[in-house]
């Protein structure tokens, strides 16, 4: 999930206070606030969808607590409901979450101590956790503050999903079309990432790939669409590089 956040990191020059557990906890809680406002309601939306899918409510807690990757979970729910083969689930997870690979370039994992701490810190390296630690200031945070920050965000998401699943059972069955939230989520995220670069050929290439996949491989839209797109990108990279060198 990509949620716009205010970077508190840059605006909080920490006075030289004693590094107590309480200080780290309080700072982590403050840092997590802005993304919490986005993560919690999004979790609720996911939980409502789980409840409406007919699965028991606690699967919302299991999905959100263990997979802990917002946009993948919305897709995942649809995939498991149609008992999609595990290989397709793995491919989808790979492609949807591939962006996390790049978080390693700047996330301050070196501040986190111990094997268990590092293991949890990479496990819980969600978009939100990355967003609040992407600032220069976070590179000097105590490891404990980073870990607690991640725990808080994890709790907002899983707590939101559980709340939504429990509330969702209350929504009457006559209410149809809640699953549009997934379409809206991806359309909105597409607009937001487009805004950061204003590169028109890439979304057009992706749209063409997806539509070709939709009509030529209707049963394998996701796989075929991503395969065409990821093959098209290096091709376009080579073409535009040729143009650049010729110019």
């Amino acid at each position: 999930m990509v949620t716009p956040t205010d970077d508190h990191a840059g605006t909080a020059p920490s006075p030289p206070a004693p590094r107590t557990l309480r200080t780290d906890l309080r700072r982590a809680f403050e840092d997590s606030g802005s993304v919490g406002l986005g993560a919690y309601p999004m979790g609720v939306a996911f939980g409502v969808l789980v409840a409406h899918s007919g699965l028991p409510w606690w699967w919302a807690s299991v999905f959100s607590g263990f997979i802990y990757a917002g946009s993948l979970e919305f897709l995942f729910l649809g995939l498991v409901l149609s008992t999609t083969p595990l290989a397709s689930i793995a491919t989808t997870a790979f492609l949807v979450n591939f962006r996390h690979v790049f978080y390693a370039l700047s996330f301050p994992l070196h501040r986190v101590r111990g094997r268990v701490g590092k293991a949890y810190s990479t496990f819980a390296l969600s978009d939100e956790a990355y967003a609040v630690t992407a600032g220069e200031a976070a590179r000097s945070y105590p490891g404990r503050r980073i870990l607690w920050l991640q725990v808080f965000i994890h709790c907002y998401w899983a707590g939101g999903a559980t709340t939504g699943a429990l509330l969702g059972s209350v929504i009457p069955d006559g209410v149809k079309g809640l699953d549009f939230a997934v379409t809206a989520l991806f359309a909105v995220l597409a607009i937001d990432v487009f805004r950061t670069r204003r590169d028109i050929p890439t979304p057009l290439l992706a749209l063409a790939c997806a539509l070709v996949a939709r009509f030529v491989f209707p049963g394998q839209l996701l796989l075929a669409g991503f395969a065409l797109f990821t093959a098209g990108l290096p091709a376009r990279y080579l073409l535009t590089r040729e143009e650049r060198t010729r110019a």
């Binding site: 591939f98 370039l105 597409a190 979304p203 839209l221």
Partner: peptide
């Protein structure tokens, strides 16, 4: 990833992939 950090293709993919992935996912839904 450390050795690939400066590869121009990796830098390029990091910039252009997200928008395309979101478009494909939107069409999928």
């Amino acid at each position: 990833l450390a050795p690939l950090r400066s590869s121009p293709l990796v830098v390029y993919l990091r910039k252009v992939m997200p928008v395309g992935v979101m478009v494909v996912l939107t069409v999928y839904t």
